[in-house]
Computed example of a mutant assay.
Amino acid sequence: MHYFYTMNAIVHIPQNELREAIDCCWYHEAGHMDQAWYSIPYLHQELILNLGDQFSITTASQAFDYGPQGGLSGLYSRPMITSVSGQYKALGIILKPFGLYRLFGVHAPLLHQQLLRLDDILGDKTQQLLLQLEDCAMPIEKIYTLERFILAHARPQPIPEEILEAGHSSSLERGHIRSLQDNHHISPKKYIQTFHNVVGYTPKKYVQLHIVNAAIAQIAATPDKALTEIAYDNGFYDQAHFIRVFRSFAGMTPMAYKKAVVAGKVNDTFPNTIRL
Rank of each mutant, 00 (worst) to 15 (best):
A256D: 08
H153W: 00
H210G: 07
D135N: 07
H28G: 04
A36Y: 06
D238Q: 08
H44S: 15
Q35I: 13
G67I: 02
R247G: 04
V207Y: 05
I159L: 10
K225L: 13
H112D: 15
D224P: 01
D23H: 13
Q45I: 06
T202H: 09
F149H: 01
F98K: 03
K189N: 11
Q132M: 15
F236W: 06
A21Q: 11
M255H: 11
H184S: 11
N272G: 13
P14C: 07
Y191E: 05
A166M: 15
A21R: 01
L43C: 11
I94P: 00
V199G: 10
N213Q: 15
Y42H: 09
E134G: 09
Y3G: 06
Q181S: 11
I40A: 02
A256S: 09
L72A: 04
L227N: 05
E147K: 09
A30W: 00
D224S: 14
Q35E: 14
T194R: 13
V198F: 08
R148C: 04
L110I: 09
A137R: 11
G200T: 10
S83R: 13
K142S: 10
P254H: 05
Q69A: 05
T222L: 12
G71A: 07
E20A: 15
I121N: 11
H32P: 10
R275T: 12
I159H: 04
V262A: 01
I274V: 13
D53N: 10
W26I: 02
D268E: 12
G86N: 11
S83F: 02
G74Y: 06
T59K: 03
N8T: 06
S169P: 01
F4R: 13
N213Y: 00
R19P: 00
A250C: 07
F64S: 03
Q87R: 13
T145S: 12
R117T: 04
G92I: 05
L146W: 06
F55A: 02
N50I: 00
V262R: 07
Q69N: 14
L129H: 04
D23F: 14
S61Y: 13
Q157L: 01
L75W: 12
E134W: 00
A108K: 05
E161G: 02
L103Q: 00
A215Y: 12
I48E: 08
I274C: 01
N8E: 14
D135S: 14
E162F: 15
L116A: 03
C25D: 09
P223Q: 02
S171H: 00
Y201P: 05
A256H: 01
L276E: 05
E165I: 13
A220C: 11
Q239P: 02
D23G: 11
G71Y: 09
K204D: 05
A220Q: 14
E162W: 12
R155L: 10
P14G: 01
L110K: 10
I216N: 06
L209Q: 05
P158G: 07
P41S: 06
H185V: 08
R178G: 01
Y3Q: 09
D182K: 14
A215G: 12
F64P: 03
S170W: 06
P139T: 01
Q15Y: 01
N234G: 05
C24S: 12
G200S: 14
F195S: 04
